[in-house]
Simulated assay, not measured.
Amino acid sequence: MADPRPSTLFERAAADVRAMALRDDLVVSEIPAPKGLAPDALALAADVRPDESGESPYGTGRFVLLHDPDEPEAWGGPWRIVCFAQAPLEPEIGMDPLVADVAWSWLVDALDSRHAPYHSASGTATKTLSKGFGTLAAEGDGSQIELRASWSPSGPVEPHIEAWAELVCMLAGLPPGSEEIQVLGARRTMRD
């Protein structure tokens, strides 16, 4: 029977993650990790400039660090990162046929800019468009971009978390260096 306790290597990585300071305009908290993906897991949730209710009109993200000392073949090593990021878009931007490609390129650029080496990357970028009808007609048109990705990190995990934080903020319209810049008007949020 496998030992249910986290490995010492994972415990050290998790402690390093918990000690990290990220952008001031990104509120990050630890959340319960998904079960059954790996023997060891740590999950984070992030909201870009949340309002008083805790909701973010700009964007949100999730980051999951997985560790399996048995090194699953698909991972190509003992570590795997799974991330999610989504943000509302202006409808005109959502209709751009390249917006999904841009979202993926921002992930790759963020990893490269943070010197976060990786391999075995996979993912999807999804854009959605919506139009309100009936009692929702007043809400008008909406659009959203969502990126789901996973990769196997090489080296320390901290640069990968910094890259994820940069990606979440980029999708929300806040490039690096925009922490102190006031945003005029939130993008329209998608209806459920």
Results as ranks from 00 to 15, higher is better:
A2G: 04
A2T: 13
P4T: 14
R5T: 15
S7V: 12
T8Y: 03
L9M: 11
R12S: 14
A15L: 13
D16M: 08
V17H: 02
A19L: 00
M20P: 00
A21C: 00
A21R: 10
A21K: 09
L22G: 01
V27E: 14
V28F: 08
V28K: 10
V28H: 07
S29P: 09
S29K: 15
S29F: 11
E30Q: 15
I31L: 12
I31K: 03
I31A: 13
P34L: 07
P34C: 12
G36A: 06
D40V: 05
A41R: 00
A43G: 00
L44G: 00
L44C: 00
A45I: 01
A46D: 01
D47S: 04
R49M: 08
G54C: 08
G59L: 02
T60V: 08
G61A: 04
F63N: 02
L65G: 05
L65M: 14
L66M: 10
D70M: 08
E71G: 03
P72Q: 06
P72C: 09
E73Y: 07
W75L: 08
G76S: 10
G77M: 12
G77H: 10
G77L: 11
P78W: 07
P78S: 15
A85H: 12
Q86D: 15
A87Y: 11
A87K: 13
P88D: 13
P88M: 12
P91R: 12
E92K: 14
G94Y: 03
V102Q: 13
A103N: 09
W104H: 14
S105A: 15
S105F: 10
L107V: 09
V108I: 14
L111E: 02
L111C: 06
L111S: 06
D112K: 15
S113D: 15
H115C: 03
A116K: 06
Y118G: 03
A121F: 06
A125D: 07
T128I: 13
L129D: 04
K131D: 04
G132H: 01
F133E: 05
T135I: 07
A137L: 05
A137D: 04
E139N: 11
D141L: 14
S143G: 15
Q144C: 09
L147P: 05
R148A: 10
S152G: 07
S154L: 08
G155D: 00
E158G: 01
E158M: 02
P159G: 01
H160K: 00
W164K: 02
A165S: 13
E166I: 08
L167I: 09
L167S: 06
C169V: 13
M170C: 07
L171S: 06
A172E: 03
A172T: 11
G173N: 05
L174N: 06
P175L: 13
G177L: 02
V183I: 14
V183D: 05
L184K: 06
G185I: 10
G185V: 10
R187M: 09
R187E: 11
R187C: 05
R188H: 12
T189G: 09
